[in-house]
Design a protein around this nucleic acid. Structure first.
Length: 566
RNA sequence: GCACCCGUAGCUCAGUUGGAUAGAGCAGCGGAUUUCUAAUCCGCCGGUCGCAGGUUCGACUCCUGCCGGGUGCGCCA
């Protein structure tokens, strides 16, 4: 949209002698009013004029090739000549192809994104889904803007519970079902927790194992812990592949174990710590009133470290290694206090890069009736099982809709995964997600499959055109039909990507794609593409081609496949 | 008790950073099919934008106070 908004702002600037930045050009409430609009209220106030009078005055003196202006009350509405609009939008997108929406504004800067971060020895359950999907989308959004992105998987591989697990393996043997390693580990993990509670000898052995692990000594315990880590990661990898997730660095909490001492020293040197009931704390009331009652605990009275210690160590390490422009933590809203405390400590240390650290929080994933979806009577809703179930349903639908089609299993995988990803990204992050299986499996309305289906139909038109050798004529841009809504939407895409990245809000892309698909479906239901006069078909085909390109770009940014057939 | 977040149609959500007559999807009702793939499209029904003040030319949007729901709150992660 900048394509047109910038030239309008410049024309208004030239006309009034004021800086172009003062003219914020927006979309009218009702598209029938115009393609773009300038509300005259603020400028009128500054000039001491009535807004409608100013709008009329500006409209009277308006002159810009291809764009007309009309005053409607206090608004100045612009309408772009349909031929100019079509030609410029289509040519721009055709020229840029898959990089339409990309820019270089982040070039030379690094964004570190911490996401997914499951715990070792437990399967990824639906609770990890949101961090994984949102984080991966943020990775791609920032890549689109030219940032160097470092995706980090901060896996939970440290803590006293691993003592118990090690002992469980010692007792029950190391053989873990290789085809389903995570389920096997989960069973061991649950057994070990149970043993720790019921068997004092086991508990003592577990404590001892944890002490040994933490001591850093090489030996049987460390060996077993490494084995558990390796097996777990291999299990996660399968799920990640299905979701198209790839981390640049896998650094668990253990990775920072030898930096903890330096972290204490650094914070102590800054003179912001104090002892409270034997524990080392940083009080935060001075930098943020609402944190008065909740200081950040860095060391327990027995000398051991805490979650906050390790996260602080990780943060220092990341700052030194990457000098990031942004460090994003894609972690649920339950941990909001933790990150506010972390940032509070940075503030107290007067580190000027504190604002670059952002907690990208998100709402809970809830079951029907807003009940907690986590683990029901010990039965964890394993992510892979959920993916399987949705893909199975997708296969049933795909077979029903398109019995003759090829690669149905592959398409079902794309549709099923797409449905889950889109369901997670279509609303604002902060909102809780209602995980209604019926809704996810319906594939109708504003869903991932709806977008993919729109994409597939566009692809189908292009295939037919190719087969019939249509669309070779010079396009007649006046023959597009009612395509204004589609064209305006297409022009907006780069703004949407920029804004979504800035706000860390993939839902902006989701909402945009829904709108674009609506416009598109609306348009081509009334404007047949093939078999028209050659110039008209050529123009419509071009619109189909660029629309498919933009929808495809958008879907991939969100982490969804863009199928050619469904 | 304190802190933070959420509250828009029966349900799930948008609302372009304060602008024009508050919009979608689902559900319900009624239409469109010799289909460029109906996983689509069109129409109808449906609103005290939680409540009350305030700021402003203008408030769903900003401020204050309530109400309701959620999350969290020093030796867990």
């Amino acid at each position: 949209m900048r394509l047109f908004a910038d030239s309008i702002a410049q024309a208004l600037a030239a006309q009034t002698g004021r800086p172009a930045a003062e003219f914020r050009i927006e979309l009218p409430r009702d598209p029938a009013l115009g393609d773009l609009a300038f509300p005259c209220f603020q400028l009128a106030k500054q000039l001491g004029k009535a807004p409608p009078a100013l709008a009329a005055e500006l409209a009277g003196a308006w002159k810009l090739e291809g764009i007309t202006a009309q005053a409607t009350g206090p608004f100045l509405n612009f309408r772009i000549d349909r031929q100019v609009l079509a030609e410029r939008v289509v040519r721009t997108i055709e020229g840029e192809g898959v990089s339409y929406g990309c820019s270089r504004e982040g070039a030379g800067q690094t964004v570190v994104i911490d996401y997914s971060s499951p715990n070792i020895a437990k399967p990824m359950h639906v609770g990890h889904l949101r961090s994984t999907i949102i984080g991966a989308a943020l990775v791609r959004l920032h890549e689109q803007l030219g940032y160097r992105v470092v995706g980090i998987n901060h896996i939970g591989d440290w803590g006293s519970q691993f003592g118990g697990l090690v002992v469980a393996i010692r007792r029950r043997g190391k053989q873990i079902d290789e085809t389903n390693p995570v389920h096997g580990l989960l069973e061991l993990y649950q057994w070990s927790k149970q043993q720790v509670e019921s068997d004092p000898a086991f508990a003592a052995e577990a404590r001892e194992a944890w002490r040994e692990l933490e001591s850093g000594r090489e030996g049987e315990v460390r060996e077993l812990w490494r084995h558990v880590t390796k097996v777990s990661l291999a299990g996660f990898e399968k799920t990640y592949r299905r979701l198209g997730i790839r981390h640049d660095l896998v650094r668990g909490e253990s990775w920072y174990e030898n930096m903890l001492q330096a972290t204490f020293e650094r914070v102590e040197k800054a003179g912001v710590v104090e002892l409270s009931q034997g524990a080392l704390v940083v009080t935060l009331g001075g930098v943020e009133k609402s944190l008065k009652e909740t200081p950040c605990l860095l060391r327990q009275s027995d000398g051991t470290t805490l979650y906050a210690t390790r996260d602080l160590a990780a943060l220092f390490s990341r700052w030194e290694e990457f000098g990031f422009a942004r460090a994003l933590y894609v972690v649920g809203g339950e941990q909001k206090l933790h990150f506010r405390q972390l940032k509070g400590v940075l503030k107290r240390m007067s580190l000027d890069w504190e604002p670059r650290v952002e907690h990208i929080d998100f709402g809970l994933l809830l079951g029907p009736g807003r009940t907690k979806l986590a683990s029901r009577k010990g039965a964890v809703l394993v992510l892979d099982d959920l993916l399987d179930e949705v893909v199975e349903e997708a296969l049933r639908v795909v077979q029903e809709k398109n019995p003759e089609g090829a690669n149905l299993a592959e398409i079902a995988e794309q549709v099923g995964i797409g449905a889950i990803v889109f369901n997670d990204l279509k609303r604002e992050r902060i909102k809780d997600v209602l995980f209604d299986k019926q809704e996810i499996l319906s594939f109708e309305g504003d869903t991932g499959p709806y977008l993919q289906y729109t994409h597939a139909r566009l692809a189908s038109i292009l295939r037919k055109a190719e087969a019939a050798s249509e669309g070779r004529a010079a396009p007649d841009w006046n023959g597009l039909g009612e395509a204004g809504g589609v064209l305006i939407a297409l022009a907006r895409y780069p703004d949407v990507v920029r804004s979504a990245a800035k706000n860390c809000e993939p839902s902006e892309v989701s909402q945009y794609l829904i709108q674009l698909a609506h416009e598109l479906n609306n348009w081509y239901v009334g404007s047949r593409v093939l078999g028209q006069e050659p110039g008209i078909t050529a123009a419509r085909l071009a619109l189909v081609r660029v629309s498919k390109s933009v929808i495809g770009n958008g879907l991939r940014v969100l982490g969804m496949a863009a199928p050619e057939q469904m």
